[in-house]
Design a protein around this nucleic acid. Structure first.
Lengths: 228, 228
DNA sequence: TGGCTTGTGCCACTCAGTGGCAGTATCTCT
DNA sequence: AGAGATACTGCCACTGAGTGGCACAAGCCA
């Protein structure tokens, strides 16, 4: 994936003042947006109003985000970006199973933990963001599309870093894409159960939910139906 | 799912003139749109231009479709709508396996065949539509979101018509959703291979691709990776 | 300090999408 | 067949997202 995202590149430590300022307005925009959107509803908050509140020109907003939806999705965006970074150095599990699915799952769980550790408010922001997306179709659509693009990048990266085996077809890439999509489906499922559950609003809850959802995949394929 | 879609309800035969006219403009819009979009690019065709070509007011366009993207997605839209209808009367496979996944898969394949049988140009239109979506992020996003909404409706419908078993948890609904999402992932995969393959541009090719993708799901979960 | 780069504000503009209202075509009932 | 009820359509004005261009200011690098 080309670095087309406008998010932060949290790697090189020595941030110049300019960059720090930029990050600060970005965070300002995210926080204010999440707040306003949850308070008044996504489409009842105009960008003009939002930019007014943050004291930033609309032009600047669009230099920071690609669309009104993206600011609401920033937490999810950051998660997947971090996931990709994590995947660049991830190694197949030390356990017996070294399936691609397990690798991806473990990397995702590790990423979640790392995000939460690096920023205490992260879990809350993710929940807010997800709730917003659930209520506003256009946000959800953008989120889905972003997931999809990320999936493609994941497939790319894994093929580049690892040797695939366990199949005879010439279509390892296709199988891999399916694997990634299944992981994503499980994660979305986990997200929704986590967001709906008031008991564990912290990152640990999300990790647990994600692990559960991944574990449920084989079961779900053998789920049986009978007419009632 | 409430009947919020603006698509045709191809069930009651005696179509009144009004409805026939409406359907005709709808089809006109779809055909012209697919043509113009593929020719000049999605965002280089304004709605004004499109409506001009079909000699319809923009207001009328928005009474027929919810958004500019939706007209490009109409074929996919129709497919999933038909899938839902099909599912209302589908019965678990007569074969030994009566898994939910098999039920959904078979229903989907049957729906594809039925769509193609009812309308010769259908396959071509679907290909065009999919190609458009692949090239225009905003179309793709809308398509994903629509798939998601349909998935929810499918879960709803299956839970209503069938008894689920094969699991001990109280979360059959969650498992089922996962099942549906996996089917959708497989189908999207199939779509892309089918669209990319010039050899079998007819519906039979899509059916084959979809069946293959579904069959590949278990394999994909056991796909193994090793560092290179 | 002074030039150089980079981010910002402002302005005007395009285009998707909506509400309202008046006009016309279709339906229905006798 | 004709008249009234019932869609559906066209037109117009409007909101709001998103973009291009240019002048200006703030941070950067000697």
């Amino acid at each position: 994936m080309a670095a087309t995202t406008k998010g932060p590149d949290a790697e090189g430590k020595p941030l110049t003042l300019r960059e720090r300022k930029k990050l600060r307005t970005r965070q300002m925009l995210i926080d204010t947006a999440l707040e306003q959107f949850t308070e008044h509803g996504f489409d009842r908050v105009t960008l003009d109003a939002l930019c007014d509140a943050v004291e930033v020109s609309k032009r600047t907003f669009f230099r920071t985000f690609d669309s009104k939806e993206e600011v609401a999705l920033a937490p999810a965006h950051d998660l997947w970006t971090a996931f990709l970074r994590e995947l660049e150095t991830a190694e197949p599990g030390n356990s017996a199973e070294s399936s691609a699915f397990a690798l991806l799952r473990d990397t995702l769980l590790a990423t979640i933990e790392r995000m939460a550790a690096a920023d205490g408010g992260w879990a809350q922001r993710v929940r807010r963001s997800r709730r917003l997306a659930a209520g506003a179709p256009s946000i959800d659509a953008h989120g889905l599309a972003f997931c999809d693009r990320t999936s493609a990048a994941v497939v790319e990266l894994v093929r580049q870093r690892f040797e695939l085996s366990g199949t005879r077809g010439p279509q390892e890439g296709l199988l891999l894409r399916l694997t990634v999509d299944i992981l994503v489906a499980a994660f979305r499922q986990a997200m929704d159960t986590w967001v709906a559950d008031p008991a564990e609003p912290d990152a640990a809850g999300l990790v647990r939910a994600a692990a559960d959802a991944c574990a449920a995949v084989p079961e779900s394929l053998s789920l049986r139906v009978s007419p009632r």
